[in-house]
Every structure is written in C-alpha cells, then in structure tokens.
Design a protein around this nucleic acid. Structure first.
Lengths: 340, 340
DNA sequence: TTGAAAGCGCTACCAA
DNA sequence: TTGGTAGCGCTTTCAA
C-alpha cells in the first residue's frame, strides 16, 4: 500500500518548491499562473490532500468548532431545536473543510472544565453558544482564556463576540392577534427559565403585546422542562378564571400541556387553545397539531457558524439579524367554546 | 502574556531531555523513579499540557471519534435515542482526553463523502455506527479506506469490527406477556424500516413470541417516521378486526399513534393499548404515559465508545453484550374494554 | 536509564 | 515570482 502523498511529493511532481505549493494551495498571491497550473495538476494527479494535522501544528488552529451542551438528558431528548440546528451548522462547516466537536455535559462544573480543556488543548477554534443566559458566565470564561465564540441571542452585558439574533416581537404579535381574533380574552403564558435570554424576551414581548391587545395574561414560570410544563398547566387549569388559551415558551412544554388537557378530559382545541414557540416538526404529529412560531433552527445553525468562521478566519464578524419568526397556524388554536 | 509551556520547557525545568519527558508522560517503562518524579513536578509547576496537534502529527492520530448521522431533520428531531447516547459517549471520551466529531447529513451521498473526508483528513480515529442496516455498506466503505469502527447491533454479513448488542427477546416477551395477561388477543406490530437491523429483529421477536402466546398479529411496515406511524395506525384502526393493542417499533411512532387515536376520539387506554420500544423520557409527558422498553441509550454510548477506544488503542476489541431491555409499564397499556 | 537528533507535513520568512 | 530553511511540539530511533 502506497503512503499518502505529501506536499513534498506534489512539489517534486510539479517541479517547484513546497513553499510555492503551500502558497498555491491557500490561494495566496505571488504565484504565477503557470506554476499554479502545474501545481494543481500535480496535486490532482497524486490525489493529494493537505494534512490537517500538519496545518494545525503550524498554524495553531484546530479547523473545528465546538458546541458544548449542558443539559440533563431528559430535557435534551425533547429538544426539537438541536437536531436541525446541528444540520445547519454542518452544512456550512463541511464547505469549509471543518468539523463540529460536540460535547454533552450534565452540570455546570463539567461544562466549565470542558470549555477549559477544549481551549487549552486547542481542540476547537471557537464556540457556538446556544441556550444563552441573560448574564452568561461562559462569555467571560471563554474571552478570559483567549477563546472565541458567537452567541445565539444577544447577552445582557458587554460581549466581545458577535451575536446572531431573531426578532420574536412580530411573531408573538401575530400569534396573540390570531388568538384575540378567535375571541380569546384570557391568554396564559408559560414562561421558561428566566435566566435564559430567550425565555425572558419571549415573556416580555407577550406581556407588551397582550397589553396592547387588551388581553388578560396569567404567567407561570418554569425551567423549560416538560415536567414543569405539566405542573404549570395543571395550576392554570385549576384556576377559577381558567384561561381559554395557553402559550408555551417552547414546544416540548406545549406537548406536555396537551397531555394534561387530555388527562383532564378537556375537549381540544375547543375548550383550550394551545400554542408553542419552536416551530418543531413534532408539532405535526400530536393531536391537535400544534400552532407555533417558525424558528428555523437550521437558519440559526448556518448563520452562527458563518459568523464564527468569519471571526476565526478574518478576526472579526458582524452581528447577524435573522428574519423574524413567522406564525404557523395549525389545529391547536381555535375559537373558544362558549361556556355557560 | 506568557506563551504556553512546551515539552522543552518541562525538560529544561526538570533537567532532562525531552525524549525522557515524552516517555514519562506516556507512562512508558525505562524512566527512573527519580526522573519521573522531577518531570511530574516540573510539568505540574509549569501547568504543561501536551499539544494535541503535535501528538497528532507525530502519531498520525486524531484523538477523536466520529459519529455521522444520516437523517432528514424531521426524523432526527424526534429521535429520543440520540441525546442520551451522545451523553454516554462523552462520559467515556472525556476521561480519555478525546472528543466527539459529529456530522449530520441529509442523504446517502453526502454521508459517503463525509466518511471519506473524515478518514482522508485523519479527523477521527474511528466511527460509531448507529442506525445499522441489515447489510450496511458503511462497513465495507470504512474498512476499505483503512478506517475503524464499532457497530451498534450485529450486522448480517461479515464485519471486521466489534459489535455492541442488546437482547430484545426477553423485553418483547415481557411486553407481549403483559398484554396477553391484560386480556389482549389481537396485538398489532408497527415495524420500522426493514433494512435496519433493529427493525427486523424487533419484528421477528414479536412474531415468535406472539405465536407462542397464541396472540393474533397484524403487521404494518414503516420507515420509522412519525408520519408513517400515523398512516399505519389509521390503517390498523380502520380494520374490521381492529387490534386492541398496538406495539410500535419506536417511541416517536407510538406518540403519533396516540395522536391518531385521540383524533379518532378513542378512549385511551381502554379502547386501545399502545406501547413503544425506546424507553424515551418523553413517554412520561404524553397522555396516557407510554409503556415501553428501557433501552438505556447512555449505556449504548458508553459501551460502544469504550469498545472503539479499545480497538483504536490496543488494535483489538471484543463484542459487548448489553443487559437485556427491560419492560417499563406505564399508563398506555390496560385491559381492553369489552366491546358489545 | 538517558541524551541527541531526525522526522511527522505543513507555513512563514528571507534571499535571490 | 521562486527556493531554501527554519520552525510548530511532539514521538521515536540510536548511541552512550
């Protein structure tokens, strides 16, 4: 079996020095067209692929990006955002010959260690920061270690990293307008973990818009888990002034809400309208099918990866606003049945 | 800012050659206790961590494992196996200072390219092969490229790679016995993609056990997607000899089945018992809560990763049998209501 | 048991 | 525009 061709083989074959091959490979200026041509031909003929390991050593680069997910498996399992997000990440990473290093950790301490280890060992060139907290310690941690990152959402404090953001105001407005037009007056909001950036903005937008539309709002707080989504739903449905519609800050809690409603024997969606906020595909396979906002996780994946690559490779990157989340009306929202 | 210490710094500090530091670092014989001690002390004092990049270049190793998932995002999204599996993988990988490279690809062609690229660029030392097909072309592909892997499940043909397996016979036997004892006589099986190894074994076990217990079986075939799970359920419930219980080859289809039953206005679980087979946590947050088999995805993750590391590092690894899948009885299975 | 030196396959720098 | 050479930080001979 023949050994893998190296840059020396290509240089010899093309009759040039390996320095020149390097320049040509990286599309750098200062290589004559003729030389470039012979180099390309030689590389193609030998089937040469530059060694990532050698480049990494010389460049002090990993040519990979890191994603560290802290979650207990049960919550992670239900997360409809994740899969499509990673697919989006992959699509741009592959085009750049880079890879994604994924880590799933159970707790905060392991999380911190993981970031440290990945940076110290130069396993990644930057991090994708999902599940952003309002005041996220990872930003300081990574910046302090000399690492780079991009945030999904804009953190509260100062951040040296680019942020990818999506406007939820219009989506939530569409959703609540939709409910108001159906005749709902009491619309509850089951909020997520308020330390999390998107939980808080979703709740704030809900409050604002509901006020403007003259809707009565009750809020229940959770940690985004289906478990707490169930509890919140039970509390809401036990109220004397039971809401006729419940908006959940994510889809998994909405599914749990549907389960509770079934358990209580409510007629859905007549006796209770339900909406989620992740645009999950699973929403098409529950009864009734779930009204939600289209969150386009793959779009988040592509945008955040591109921004991070820009930062890593060009030293800077601008914030990226994603198109506003759009309303997806399915069967779980309808006019409330008149109650005696 | 001080530069990262290298092996030379440690050697100098300890007053030895760097070759000796290398031996000590890797726990190799031929280093005196005294030298080893001074080296350890020097390394600790300087806070030295060997450069993964340099080792990779010298050793032609990536110190990372690859997981390539081919799935359209909608199916992936619903996959309760994946998250806990990766968490299990991580737990052993981190202890070995290695990382997981994850790739999510949409189709077979991209999948093949991804394996080729990862091997050619030496980005990973081996692959975890999930979603095993009965006759899986990835085995030949990877073996042909000189790569290594471990399979989750045992493939039909010859395989040079170790296999991690779990016995489902006893779990399926427990499940069907449970249903038989509740009084069910017609138990349908909604099978998954028959090209997939676990889909076929689950179906075969179901048939065997049902025969033995004298249960009548109807089988519907699907591709494991909730979408087809819905269709299959509709067909089953439209039959004149409608089954009183349906066993689904995975949990997402079982959820879809529950949705269809609700849609048709069936009283669950009385009029229809439903069971899944992934032991998903989500099963606790639907109504009725889902009876299923405990698949322990994290266990799969730990075992397959350990086997692959053994193979990569010691050149060989044995097959690993996991404990049999156990029955988890929840609310979705009950005695069938007597029909007039 | 230890040290010196070569090599892994690239990039970067300095002359020419 | 090019070639030669010196790294990047390890591991692995081969002598001593």
């Amino acid at each position: 079996m023949m050994r893998k061709p190296t840059i020396d083989d290509v240089a010899r074959e093309a009759g040039v020095s390996k320095g020149l091959v390097s320049l040509a490979l990286n599309g750098r200026p200062g290589v004559s067209a003729a030389a470039r041509e012979r180099i390309d031909a030689a590389a193609a003929e030998l089937g040469w692929r530059p060694s990532t390991n050698a480049r990494s050593l010389a460049m002090k680069r990993a040519y990979s990006l890191g994603l560290v997910v802290r979650r207990d498996p049960s919550t992670f399992e239900a997360d409809p955002f994740f899969a499509a997000y990673v697919a989006g990440v992959e699509s741009v990473l592959a085009a750049h010959g880079q890879v994604l290093v994924l880590s799933v950790v159970p707790d905060h301490e392991t999380e911190t260690q993981t970031y440290r280890r990945l940076i110290a060992d130069q396993r990644v060139d930057g991090f994708l920061l999902t599940d952003l907290l309002e005041s996220d310690p990872r930003i300081e941690l990574i910046a302090g270690l000399g690492g780079r990152a991009v945030t999904l959402g804009r953190p509260q404090g100062e951040s040296p990293f680019p942020a990818v953001t999506r406007d939820y105001a219009s989506g939530i407005e569409s959703l609540l307008t939709h409910l108001a037009e159906l005749g709902h007056r009491r619309v509850a909001h089951v909020a997520g973990d308020e330390n999390m950036q998107h939980a808080r903005t979703r709740l704030e937008r809900h409050r604002e818009v509901a006020d403007r539309l003259g809707l009565e709002t009750v809020v229940e707080h959770t940690d985004f888990s289906p478990e707490q989504g169930m509890d919140a739903t039970r509390r809401l449905l036990a109220r004397p002034d039971r809401p006729t519609a419940i908006v959940y800050a994510n889809d998994p809690m909405a599914f749990a809400g549907i389960a509770v409603a079934h358990e209580l024997g409510l007629d859905l969606p007549g006796e209770l309208s339900i909406a989620g906020m992740d645009g999950s595909d699973m929403g098409r396979f529950v009864y009734p099918t779930l009204t939600t906002l289209d969150n386009d996780p793959a779009g988040w994946g592509r945008a955040s990866t591109q921004a991070l690559l820009d930062l890593v490779e060009r030293g800077q990157a601008a914030d990226v606003p994603l198109p506003p989340a759009a309303l997806i009306v399915r069967a779980s929202t309808t006019a409330p049945t008149a109650t005696a």
